[in-house]
Design a protein around this nucleic acid. Structure first.
Lengths: 241, 241
DNA sequence: CGAAAACTTGACTGAGGTCAAGTGGTGTGG
DNA sequence: CCACACCACTTGACCTCAGTCAAGTTTTCG
Protein backbone atom coordinates (compact mmCIF):
# COMPACT_ATOMS: atom_id res chain seq x y z
CA UNK A 1 0.00 0.00 0.00
CA UNK A 2 1.56 3.27 0.98
CA UNK A 3 5.27 3.37 1.38
CA UNK A 4 5.25 6.79 2.89
CA UNK A 5 2.70 9.04 4.44
CA UNK A 6 2.71 12.78 4.55
CA UNK A 7 0.59 13.25 7.52
CA UNK A 8 -0.35 11.03 10.35
CA UNK A 9 -3.87 9.79 10.41
CA UNK A 10 -4.96 10.79 6.99
CA UNK A 11 -7.69 8.79 5.43
CA UNK A 12 -6.17 5.66 4.01
CA UNK A 13 -7.26 6.62 0.51
CA UNK A 14 -4.87 9.09 -0.98
CA UNK A 15 -4.44 10.36 -4.44
CA UNK A 16 -1.18 9.50 -6.11
CA UNK A 17 -0.60 13.22 -6.24
CA UNK A 18 -0.79 13.56 -2.48
CA UNK A 19 1.73 10.79 -1.95
CA UNK A 20 4.18 12.40 -4.34
CA UNK A 21 3.62 15.67 -2.56
CA UNK A 22 4.89 14.24 0.69
CA UNK A 23 7.79 12.48 -0.96
CA UNK A 24 9.03 15.49 -2.84
CA UNK A 25 8.88 17.68 0.27
CA UNK A 26 10.58 14.97 2.31
CA UNK A 27 13.49 14.94 -0.10
CA UNK A 28 14.36 18.46 1.04
CA UNK A 29 15.35 17.06 4.41
CA UNK A 30 17.77 14.47 3.10
CA UNK A 31 20.69 16.86 3.19
CA UNK A 32 20.47 17.22 6.95
CA UNK A 33 21.60 14.55 9.38
CA UNK A 34 19.02 12.34 11.11
CA UNK A 35 19.27 13.22 14.79
CA UNK A 36 18.37 10.52 17.29
CA UNK A 37 15.75 11.48 19.90
CA UNK A 38 15.11 9.26 22.90
CA UNK A 39 11.56 8.24 23.75
CA UNK A 40 9.81 10.93 25.78
CA UNK A 41 12.20 13.72 24.78
CA UNK A 42 10.86 16.92 23.26
CA UNK A 43 11.66 17.98 19.72
CA UNK A 44 10.22 21.49 19.99
CA UNK A 45 8.15 23.47 22.48
CA UNK A 46 4.84 25.28 22.24
CA UNK A 47 5.45 29.02 22.24
CA UNK A 48 8.97 28.84 20.85
CA UNK A 49 9.72 30.54 17.59
CA UNK A 50 9.21 28.02 14.81
CA UNK A 51 12.59 28.40 13.15
CA UNK A 52 12.67 24.83 11.91
CA UNK A 53 10.50 22.21 10.32
CA UNK A 54 11.08 18.60 11.20
CA UNK A 55 10.72 15.37 9.39
CA UNK A 56 10.20 12.06 11.13
CA UNK A 57 12.75 9.70 9.66
CA UNK A 58 11.96 6.89 12.06
CA UNK A 59 9.71 6.44 15.09
CA UNK A 60 6.49 8.07 16.31
CA UNK A 61 5.97 11.63 17.51
CA UNK A 62 3.08 13.19 19.44
CA UNK A 63 2.01 16.84 19.20
CA UNK A 64 0.29 18.25 22.23
CA UNK A 65 -0.90 21.35 24.00
CA UNK A 66 -1.36 21.77 27.71
CA UNK A 67 -4.21 23.90 28.99
CA UNK A 68 -3.87 24.64 32.69
CA UNK A 69 -4.16 22.14 35.53
CA UNK A 70 -2.37 19.50 33.52
CA UNK A 71 -5.05 19.05 30.89
CA UNK A 72 -3.18 17.75 27.87
CA UNK A 73 -4.56 17.46 24.35
CA UNK A 74 -2.66 15.39 21.80
CA UNK A 75 -3.73 16.91 18.51
CA UNK A 76 -1.86 14.47 16.29
CA UNK A 77 0.59 11.63 16.05
CA UNK A 78 3.23 11.68 13.35
CA UNK A 79 4.94 8.66 11.82
CA UNK A 80 7.93 7.96 9.62
CA UNK A 81 7.83 10.21 6.57
CA UNK A 82 5.61 12.88 8.12
CA UNK A 83 6.52 16.54 8.31
CA UNK A 84 6.09 18.50 11.53
CA UNK A 85 5.45 22.22 11.56
CA UNK A 86 4.32 22.70 7.97
CA UNK A 87 1.21 24.57 9.07
CA UNK A 88 2.95 27.06 11.33
CA UNK A 89 3.42 30.76 10.72
CA UNK A 90 5.43 32.16 13.57
CA UNK A 91 5.56 30.13 16.76
CA UNK A 92 4.99 26.50 17.54
CA UNK A 93 1.43 26.05 18.73
CA UNK A 94 2.24 22.59 20.07
CA UNK A 95 5.00 20.71 21.81
CA UNK A 96 6.37 17.75 19.87
CA UNK A 97 7.72 14.76 21.77
CA UNK A 98 9.10 11.41 20.73
CA UNK A 99 6.70 8.60 21.63
CA UNK A 100 9.26 5.99 20.72
CA UNK A 101 12.96 6.29 20.02
CA UNK A 102 13.08 8.48 16.91
CA UNK A 103 15.30 9.75 14.16
CA UNK A 104 14.46 13.32 13.18
CA UNK A 105 15.74 15.53 10.39
CA UNK A 106 15.37 19.29 10.52
CA UNK A 107 15.41 22.19 8.11
CA UNK A 108 15.13 25.90 8.67
CA UNK A 109 11.76 27.42 7.90
CA UNK A 110 13.46 30.00 5.75
CA UNK A 111 15.26 27.57 3.47
CA UNK A 112 12.15 25.41 3.34
CA UNK A 113 10.12 28.31 2.04
CA UNK A 114 12.92 29.33 -0.31
CA UNK A 115 13.05 25.85 -1.78
CA UNK A 116 9.28 25.69 -2.11
CA UNK A 117 9.25 29.06 -3.85
CA UNK A 118 12.10 28.01 -6.16
CA UNK A 119 10.53 24.82 -7.39
CA UNK A 120 7.42 24.47 -9.54
CA UNK A 121 6.54 21.10 -8.08
CA UNK A 122 7.03 21.90 -4.42
CA UNK A 123 4.45 24.67 -4.09
CA UNK A 124 1.50 22.44 -4.98
CA UNK A 125 3.01 19.66 -2.88
CA UNK A 126 3.12 21.97 0.12
CA UNK A 127 -0.42 23.16 -0.40
CA UNK A 128 -1.57 19.59 -0.83
CA UNK A 129 0.03 18.70 2.48
CA UNK A 130 -1.69 21.59 4.24
CA UNK A 131 -5.03 20.50 2.80
CA UNK A 132 -4.51 16.98 4.03
CA UNK A 133 -3.77 18.29 7.49
CA UNK A 134 -6.94 20.35 7.38
CA UNK A 135 -8.97 17.28 6.43
CA UNK A 136 -7.43 15.32 9.29
CA UNK A 137 -8.20 18.11 11.75
CA UNK A 138 -11.76 18.17 10.46
CA UNK A 139 -12.09 14.46 11.06
CA UNK A 140 -10.74 14.79 14.57
CA UNK A 141 -13.23 17.55 15.37
CA UNK A 142 -16.07 15.26 14.36
CA UNK A 143 -14.68 12.51 16.56
CA UNK A 144 -14.29 14.78 19.57
CA UNK A 145 -17.61 16.47 19.05
CA UNK A 146 -20.01 13.62 18.47
CA UNK A 147 -18.53 10.20 18.99
CA UNK A 148 -18.85 8.10 22.14
CA UNK A 149 -15.95 6.27 23.76
CA UNK A 150 -16.38 3.09 21.73
CA UNK A 151 -16.65 4.93 18.43
CA UNK A 152 -13.54 6.94 19.28
CA UNK A 153 -11.49 3.86 20.05
CA UNK A 154 -12.70 2.03 16.96
CA UNK A 155 -11.92 5.04 14.75
CA UNK A 156 -8.47 5.21 16.25
CA UNK A 157 -7.73 1.53 15.78
CA UNK A 158 -9.03 1.57 12.20
CA UNK A 159 -6.76 4.50 11.41
CA UNK A 160 -3.75 2.78 12.92
CA UNK A 161 -4.62 -0.39 11.05
CA UNK A 162 -4.87 1.49 7.76
CA UNK A 163 -1.22 2.43 8.00
CA UNK A 164 1.11 -0.13 6.53
CA UNK A 165 1.48 -2.74 9.22
CA UNK A 166 4.01 -5.54 8.98
CA UNK A 167 1.90 -8.59 9.75
CA UNK A 168 -1.68 -8.74 8.53
CA UNK A 169 -4.18 -8.30 11.30
CA UNK A 170 -1.66 -7.35 13.95
CA UNK A 171 -1.59 -3.63 14.63
CA UNK A 172 1.24 -2.00 16.51
CA UNK A 173 0.10 0.54 19.13
CA UNK A 174 3.30 2.49 19.77
CA UNK A 175 1.81 4.94 22.26
CA UNK A 176 0.71 4.23 25.82
CA UNK A 177 -2.84 4.41 27.16
CA UNK A 178 -2.44 7.94 28.46
CA UNK A 179 -1.42 9.16 25.02
CA UNK A 180 -4.42 7.46 23.44
CA UNK A 181 -6.72 8.95 26.08
CA UNK A 182 -5.36 12.46 25.56
CA UNK A 183 -5.75 12.12 21.81
CA UNK A 184 -9.33 10.85 21.98
CA UNK A 185 -10.57 13.17 24.71
CA UNK A 186 -11.08 10.33 27.19
CA UNK A 187 -9.44 9.12 30.37
CA UNK A 188 -6.97 6.30 30.64
CA UNK A 189 -9.54 4.21 32.51
CA UNK A 190 -12.16 4.61 29.79
CA UNK A 191 -9.65 3.64 27.12
CA UNK A 192 -8.74 0.55 29.08
CA UNK A 193 -12.34 -0.43 29.75
CA UNK A 194 -13.33 0.10 26.13
CA UNK A 195 -10.52 -2.07 24.80
CA UNK A 196 -11.49 -4.76 27.31
CA UNK A 197 -15.08 -4.57 26.09
CA UNK A 198 -14.04 -4.85 22.42
CA UNK A 199 -11.89 -7.83 23.34
CA UNK A 200 -14.73 -9.53 25.19
CA UNK A 201 -16.84 -9.21 22.04
CA UNK A 202 -14.01 -10.82 20.10
CA UNK A 203 -13.50 -7.83 17.82
CA UNK A 204 -9.86 -7.35 18.78
CA UNK A 205 -7.39 -9.34 20.87
CA UNK A 206 -4.78 -7.39 22.84
CA UNK A 207 -1.36 -9.00 22.56
CA UNK A 208 0.74 -7.27 25.16
CA UNK A 209 0.43 -3.56 25.77
CA UNK A 210 1.49 -2.45 22.35
CA UNK A 211 -0.14 -4.81 19.88
CA UNK A 212 -3.70 -5.54 18.89
CA UNK A 213 -4.84 -8.40 16.75
CA UNK A 214 -7.77 -7.29 14.60
CA UNK A 215 -10.29 -10.10 14.48
CA UNK A 216 -13.11 -8.28 12.73
CA UNK A 217 -12.06 -5.19 10.82
CA UNK A 218 -15.44 -4.77 9.14
CA UNK A 219 -17.17 -4.65 12.51
CA UNK A 220 -14.55 -2.23 13.79
CA UNK A 221 -15.22 0.12 10.89
CA UNK A 222 -18.92 -0.20 11.47
CA UNK A 223 -18.51 0.68 15.13
CA UNK A 224 -16.35 3.68 14.36
CA UNK A 225 -19.49 5.69 13.70
CA UNK A 226 -18.47 7.24 10.40
CA UNK A 227 -22.01 6.57 9.25
CA UNK A 228 -23.27 7.20 5.74
CA UNK A 229 -21.96 3.67 5.29
CA UNK A 230 -24.35 0.81 5.95
CA UNK A 231 -27.15 2.63 7.67
CA UNK A 232 -29.37 -0.46 7.82
CA UNK A 233 -27.87 -2.35 10.74
CA UNK A 234 -26.39 -5.73 9.87
CA UNK A 235 -23.48 -5.74 7.51
CA UNK A 236 -24.94 -7.11 4.31
CA UNK A 237 -23.89 -4.22 2.19
CA UNK A 238 -22.55 -6.96 -0.07
CA UNK A 239 -25.62 -8.26 -1.72
CA UNK A 240 -27.65 -5.14 -2.28
CA UNK A 241 -29.81 -4.59 -5.33
CA UNK B 1 -9.73 46.83 14.90
CA UNK B 2 -9.88 44.46 11.96
CA UNK B 3 -11.71 45.61 8.90
CA UNK B 4 -11.71 42.20 7.36
CA UNK B 5 -11.06 38.70 8.51
CA UNK B 6 -9.85 35.81 6.46
CA UNK B 7 -11.11 33.04 8.52
CA UNK B 8 -13.83 32.84 11.07
CA UNK B 9 -12.75 32.42 14.62
CA UNK B 10 -9.10 33.11 14.31
CA UNK B 11 -7.34 34.43 17.30
CA UNK B 12 -8.01 38.09 17.46
CA UNK B 13 -4.32 38.87 17.18
CA UNK B 14 -3.25 38.73 13.58
CA UNK B 15 -0.17 39.84 11.86
CA UNK B 16 -0.57 42.58 9.33
CA UNK B 17 0.69 40.08 6.81
CA UNK B 18 -2.15 37.71 7.52
CA UNK B 19 -4.72 40.42 7.05
CA UNK B 20 -3.25 41.43 3.74
CA UNK B 21 -3.22 37.80 2.76
CA UNK B 22 -6.97 37.59 3.12
CA UNK B 23 -7.52 40.88 1.38
CA UNK B 24 -5.41 40.09 -1.63
CA UNK B 25 -7.08 36.71 -2.07
CA UNK B 26 -10.49 38.28 -1.62
CA UNK B 27 -9.82 40.67 -4.46
CA UNK B 28 -9.82 37.73 -6.85
CA UNK B 29 -13.52 37.33 -6.25
CA UNK B 30 -14.46 40.88 -7.09
CA UNK B 31 -14.92 40.11 -10.77
CA UNK B 32 -17.78 37.73 -10.04
CA UNK B 33 -21.26 38.84 -9.06
CA UNK B 34 -22.36 38.66 -5.43
CA UNK B 35 -25.15 36.09 -5.38
CA UNK B 36 -27.81 36.45 -2.70
CA UNK B 37 -28.44 33.35 -0.57
CA UNK B 38 -31.45 33.17 1.74
CA UNK B 39 -30.97 32.17 5.37
CA UNK B 40 -30.90 28.40 5.74
CA UNK B 41 -30.08 27.72 2.10
CA UNK B 42 -27.06 25.62 1.15
CA UNK B 43 -24.11 27.02 -0.76
CA UNK B 44 -22.42 23.69 -1.42
CA UNK B 45 -22.80 20.09 -0.31
CA UNK B 46 -20.50 17.63 1.37
CA UNK B 47 -19.39 15.02 -1.14
CA UNK B 48 -19.86 17.20 -4.20
CA UNK B 49 -16.89 17.95 -6.37
CA UNK B 50 -15.31 21.17 -5.12
CA UNK B 51 -15.30 23.03 -8.41
CA UNK B 52 -15.64 26.43 -6.79
CA UNK B 53 -14.34 28.45 -3.92
CA UNK B 54 -16.66 30.93 -2.26
CA UNK B 55 -16.20 34.22 -0.58
CA UNK B 56 -18.63 35.58 1.97
CA UNK B 57 -19.41 39.12 0.87
CA UNK B 58 -22.06 39.65 3.50
CA UNK B 59 -23.71 37.53 6.18
CA UNK B 60 -22.71 34.44 8.16
CA UNK B 61 -22.17 30.90 6.91
CA UNK B 62 -21.90 27.62 8.80
CA UNK B 63 -19.89 24.60 7.65
CA UNK B 64 -21.11 21.26 8.89
CA UNK B 65 -20.89 17.52 8.54
CA UNK B 66 -23.57 15.04 9.41
CA UNK B 67 -22.58 11.68 10.83
CA UNK B 68 -25.49 9.25 10.89
CA UNK B 69 -28.64 9.52 12.98
CA UNK B 70 -28.74 13.26 12.58
CA UNK B 71 -25.58 14.03 14.50
CA UNK B 72 -24.40 17.32 13.09
CA UNK B 73 -21.01 18.93 13.70
CA UNK B 74 -20.51 22.56 12.79
CA UNK B 75 -16.79 22.78 12.19
CA UNK B 76 -16.68 26.51 11.56
CA UNK B 77 -18.62 29.71 11.04
CA UNK B 78 -17.53 32.11 8.32
CA UNK B 79 -18.15 35.85 8.26
CA UNK B 80 -17.91 38.66 5.75
CA UNK B 81 -14.55 38.57 4.02
CA UNK B 82 -13.85 34.90 4.71
CA UNK B 83 -13.05 32.36 2.03
CA UNK B 84 -14.78 28.99 1.93
CA UNK B 85 -13.14 25.91 0.45
CA UNK B 86 -9.54 27.07 0.43
CA UNK B 87 -8.39 23.91 2.18
CA UNK B 88 -10.07 21.46 -0.16
CA UNK B 89 -8.41 19.18 -2.64
CA UNK B 90 -11.11 17.31 -4.51
CA UNK B 91 -14.52 17.19 -2.90
CA UNK B 92 -16.28 19.30 -0.32
CA UNK B 93 -15.85 17.66 3.07
CA UNK B 94 -18.59 19.85 4.53
CA UNK B 95 -21.91 21.37 3.64
CA UNK B 96 -22.01 25.17 3.73
CA UNK B 97 -25.27 26.90 4.60
CA UNK B 98 -26.26 30.50 5.08
CA UNK B 99 -26.98 31.24 8.73
CA UNK B 100 -28.31 34.67 7.86
CA UNK B 101 -29.25 36.19 4.55
CA UNK B 102 -25.93 36.25 2.66
CA UNK B 103 -24.19 37.58 -0.37
CA UNK B 104 -21.70 35.10 -1.80
CA UNK B 105 -19.15 35.41 -4.58
CA UNK B 106 -17.71 32.37 -6.29
CA UNK B 107 -14.69 31.47 -8.35
CA UNK B 108 -13.66 28.25 -10.03
CA UNK B 109 -11.00 26.30 -8.23
CA UNK B 110 -9.02 26.12 -11.44
CA UNK B 111 -8.85 29.84 -12.04
CA UNK B 112 -8.17 30.41 -8.35
CA UNK B 113 -5.13 28.17 -8.51
CA UNK B 114 -4.06 29.71 -11.81
CA UNK B 115 -4.20 33.18 -10.31
CA UNK B 116 -2.34 32.07 -7.20
CA UNK B 117 0.36 30.45 -9.35
CA UNK B 118 0.61 33.54 -11.55
CA UNK B 119 1.12 36.04 -8.76
CA UNK B 120 4.11 36.32 -6.47
CA UNK B 121 2.05 37.76 -3.64
CA UNK B 122 -0.87 35.37 -3.75
CA UNK B 123 1.02 32.14 -3.08
CA UNK B 124 2.21 33.21 0.37
CA UNK B 125 -1.19 34.75 1.04
CA UNK B 126 -2.86 31.44 0.28
CA UNK B 127 -0.43 29.50 2.44
CA UNK B 128 -0.90 32.00 5.23
CA UNK B 129 -4.64 31.47 5.05
CA UNK B 130 -4.27 27.71 5.24
CA UNK B 131 -2.03 28.07 8.28
CA UNK B 132 -4.56 30.26 10.01
CA UNK B 133 -7.24 27.67 9.36
CA UNK B 134 -4.98 25.01 10.82
CA UNK B 135 -4.46 27.08 13.96
CA UNK B 136 -8.21 27.59 14.32
CA UNK B 137 -8.86 23.88 13.91
CA UNK B 138 -6.22 23.19 16.55
CA UNK B 139 -7.95 25.56 18.94
CA UNK B 140 -11.30 23.91 18.33
CA UNK B 141 -9.84 20.48 19.03
CA UNK B 142 -8.62 21.70 22.40
CA UNK B 143 -12.06 23.11 23.17
CA UNK B 144 -13.86 19.91 22.20
CA UNK B 145 -11.35 17.68 23.91
CA UNK B 146 -10.87 19.26 27.30
CA UNK B 147 -13.25 22.10 28.06
CA UNK B 148 -16.48 21.88 30.03
CA UNK B 149 -19.73 23.49 28.96
CA UNK B 150 -19.05 26.84 30.63
CA UNK B 151 -15.54 27.09 29.23
CA UNK B 152 -16.85 26.28 25.76
CA UNK B 153 -19.51 28.96 25.90
CA UNK B 154 -17.12 31.54 27.28
CA UNK B 155 -14.53 30.74 24.59
CA UNK B 156 -17.21 31.09 21.96
CA UNK B 157 -18.49 34.40 23.24
CA UNK B 158 -14.98 35.81 23.59
CA UNK B 159 -14.21 34.88 19.99
CA UNK B 160 -17.41 36.47 18.76
CA UNK B 161 -16.66 39.55 20.82
CA UNK B 162 -13.15 39.80 19.37
CA UNK B 163 -14.60 40.30 15.92
CA UNK B 164 -15.38 43.89 15.12
CA UNK B 165 -18.68 44.58 16.75
CA UNK B 166 -20.62 47.77 16.16
CA UNK B 167 -21.45 48.89 19.68
CA UNK B 168 -18.93 48.35 22.44
CA UNK B 169 -19.95 45.56 24.76
CA UNK B 170 -22.87 44.38 22.69
CA UNK B 171 -22.09 41.20 20.76
CA UNK B 172 -24.27 40.01 17.94
CA UNK B 173 -25.00 36.25 17.99
CA UNK B 174 -26.19 35.63 14.45
CA UNK B 175 -26.69 31.88 14.81
CA UNK B 176 -29.39 30.09 16.78
CA UNK B 177 -28.90 27.92 19.87
CA UNK B 178 -28.83 24.69 17.90
CA UNK B 179 -26.00 26.00 15.73
CA UNK B 180 -24.05 27.02 18.81
CA UNK B 181 -24.65 23.63 20.40
CA UNK B 182 -23.52 21.74 17.29
CA UNK B 183 -20.40 23.88 17.09
CA UNK B 184 -19.44 23.43 20.73
CA UNK B 185 -20.29 19.75 21.02
CA UNK B 186 -23.15 20.38 23.45
CA UNK B 187 -26.93 20.18 23.38
CA UNK B 188 -29.27 23.09 22.90
CA UNK B 189 -30.45 22.75 26.51
CA UNK B 190 -26.94 22.92 27.91
CA UNK B 191 -26.20 26.02 25.83
CA UNK B 192 -29.35 27.65 27.13
CA UNK B 193 -28.72 26.75 30.74
CA UNK B 194 -25.11 27.88 30.58
CA UNK B 195 -26.03 31.28 29.19
CA UNK B 196 -28.65 31.62 31.91
CA UNK B 197 -26.03 30.79 34.50
CA UNK B 198 -23.57 33.36 33.12
CA UNK B 199 -26.34 35.91 33.14
CA UNK B 200 -27.27 35.15 36.74
CA UNK B 201 -23.65 35.80 37.69
CA UNK B 202 -23.86 39.11 35.88
CA UNK B 203 -21.11 38.26 33.41
CA UNK B 204 -23.31 38.74 30.35
CA UNK B 205 -26.82 40.05 29.79
CA UNK B 206 -28.87 38.49 26.98
CA UNK B 207 -30.72 41.13 24.98
CA UNK B 208 -33.09 39.15 22.86
CA UNK B 209 -32.04 35.89 21.25
CA UNK B 210 -29.34 37.33 19.09
CA UNK B 211 -27.48 39.83 21.22
CA UNK B 212 -25.39 39.59 24.34
CA UNK B 213 -24.18 42.48 26.42
CA UNK B 214 -20.74 41.70 27.80
CA UNK B 215 -20.58 42.96 31.36
CA UNK B 216 -17.25 41.45 32.36
CA UNK B 217 -15.00 40.53 29.46
CA UNK B 218 -11.99 39.86 31.68
CA UNK B 219 -13.99 37.33 33.69
CA UNK B 220 -15.28 35.79 30.48
CA UNK B 221 -11.74 35.30 29.21
CA UNK B 222 -10.73 33.87 32.54
CA UNK B 223 -13.60 31.40 32.42
CA UNK B 224 -12.79 30.33 28.88
CA UNK B 225 -10.15 28.01 30.28
CA UNK B 226 -7.31 29.00 27.96
CA UNK B 227 -5.05 28.85 30.99
CA UNK B 228 -1.55 30.34 30.89
CA UNK B 229 -3.53 33.45 31.80
CA UNK B 230 -3.45 34.67 35.38
CA UNK B 231 -2.97 31.44 37.24
CA UNK B 232 -2.71 33.40 40.48
CA UNK B 233 -6.37 34.21 40.99
CA UNK B 234 -5.97 37.95 41.22
CA UNK B 235 -9.53 38.59 40.07
CA UNK B 236 -11.38 37.93 43.30
CA UNK B 237 -12.17 34.37 42.40
CA UNK B 238 -12.41 33.93 46.14
CA UNK B 239 -15.58 35.46 47.48
CA UNK B 240 -18.00 34.18 44.89
CA UNK B 241 -20.08 31.11 45.33
C1' DC C 1 -54.63 36.87 16.32
C1' DG C 2 -53.24 31.98 16.28
C1' DA C 3 -49.88 28.58 15.18
C1' DA C 4 -45.41 27.23 14.80
C1' DA C 5 -40.75 27.73 15.83
C1' DA C 6 -37.17 28.92 19.06
C1' DC C 7 -35.86 29.01 23.45
C1' DT C 8 -35.92 28.11 28.62
C1' DT C 9 -36.60 25.45 32.60
C1' DG C 10 -37.17 21.35 35.47
C1' DA C 11 -36.76 16.40 36.73
C1' DC C 12 -34.42 12.47 35.86
C1' DT C 13 -30.75 9.41 33.68
C1' DG C 14 -26.54 7.63 32.25
C1' DA C 15 -21.89 7.62 30.00
C1' DG C 16 -17.79 8.54 31.30
C1' DG C 17 -14.92 10.74 35.01
C1' DT C 18 -12.79 10.13 39.64
C1' DC C 19 -10.82 7.66 43.26
C1' DA C 20 -8.92 3.58 44.96
C1' DA C 21 -7.30 -1.10 44.74
C1' DG C 22 -5.50 -4.84 42.38
C1' DT C 23 -2.63 -7.15 38.59
C1' DG C 24 1.12 -8.06 35.69
C1' DG C 25 5.07 -7.23 33.02
C1' DT C 26 9.79 -5.32 32.97
C1' DG C 27 14.12 -3.94 34.59
C1' DT C 28 17.72 -3.78 38.22
C1' DG C 29 20.66 -5.21 41.78
C1' DG C 30 22.09 -8.92 44.65
C1' DC D 1 18.35 -16.53 38.40
C1' DC D 2 15.42 -14.63 41.71
C1' DA D 3 13.49 -10.81 44.57
C1' DC D 4 11.97 -6.66 44.64
C1' DA D 5 10.23 -2.47 43.10
C1' DC D 6 8.23 0.26 39.80
C1' DC D 7 5.39 1.52 36.34
C1' DA D 8 1.70 0.76 33.04
C1' DC D 9 -2.42 -0.99 32.92
C1' DT D 10 -6.94 -3.03 34.55
C1' DT D 11 -10.88 -3.36 37.36
C1' DG D 12 -14.40 -1.91 40.66
C1' DA D 13 -17.36 1.38 43.23
C1' DC D 14 -19.17 5.61 43.21
C1' DC D 15 -20.20 10.37 41.49
C1' DT D 16 -21.07 14.14 38.39
C1' DC D 17 -21.78 16.82 34.39
C1' DA D 18 -24.19 17.09 30.60
C1' DG D 19 -27.76 14.53 27.93
C1' DT D 20 -32.69 13.20 27.55
C1' DC D 21 -37.42 13.87 27.99
C1' DA D 22 -41.11 16.76 28.96
C1' DA D 23 -43.37 20.96 29.96
C1' DG D 24 -43.69 25.74 29.84
C1' DT D 25 -42.62 30.41 27.78
C1' DT D 26 -41.48 33.75 24.34
C1' DT D 27 -40.83 35.24 19.75
C1' DT D 28 -41.84 35.20 14.95
C1' DC D 29 -44.59 35.21 11.17
C1' DG D 30 -48.49 34.21 8.19
Amino acid sequence: MLMQNNHAFENAEKTGEAINAGQSLSSLFLSSAAEPVAAGKAICWEGDQAKHLFQVEEGVVRLHRIIGEGRRVITAFHFAGDLIGASLQNDFIFTAEAVTECKIRRMSRKSFHDEVARSDALGPAYISLLCQEAAAAHEQMVLLSKKNAEERLCSFIVKLASRRNPRQGLVRIPMNRQDIADHLGLTIETVSRTITKLASRNIVIPEGRHDLRIVNLARLKQLSGDADDFSDDSCHRVNLH
